[in-house]
């Protein structure tokens, strides 16, 4: 997941796009190290240190990762899309918002 997401965040940096995580790791300090090490630059909500935390419980999340894609009007448009399917969804939704993009990744999906 990370390389694909890193690539998306880099490519869409100047587009009306945001990747928002909800993180359920246990150890906050360790997580900060991991994020630094793996270049995870996007913002995440802290789910209280557990997969049973308040946000994932409210959203009834039972599998990780769980993905929602929301359009520029704030409407849920896709669930559970990853990889190519996520790219296609983003191209479509950004297109609707008047921003034409073609998302590409290199072999590692790192887009560099």
């Amino acid at each position: 997941m990370y390389p694909h997401e890193r690539s998306l965040v880099k490519q869409l940096a100047d587009k009306p796009f945001a990747l928002i995580g909800v993180n359920s790791d246990r150890d906050r300090e360790k997580l900060k190290d991991v994020m630094k090490e793996k270049d995870i630059t996007w913002r995440s909500f802290w789910n209280g240190g557990s997969t049973g935390g308040p946000i994932s419980t409210k959203w009834n999340v039972r599998g990780w990762p769980t993905i929602y894609v929301v359009d520029a009007k704030g409407v849920i448009r896709y669930k559970g899309v990853r990889g190519d399917k996520m790219d296609a969804a983003l191209e479509e939704l950004l297109g609707e918002a008047g921003v034409e993009v073609k998302i590409t990744h290199d072999d590692e999906g790192d887009g560099e």
Binding site: S44, W59, P65
Partner: peptide, 30 residues
């Protein structure tokens, strides 16, 4: 909306990103 704090303890809301296409990813490094 989701209202909470980020990993560094700074409060923010999902609605701060209104007007953007948003991917919400429930994740963990495990």
């Amino acid at each position: 909306d989701i209202i909470g704090e980020d990993v560094d303890g700074v409060e923010f809301k999902l609605s701060d990103y209104k007007g953007k296409v948003v991917v919400i990813d429930f994740w963990g490094d495990w």
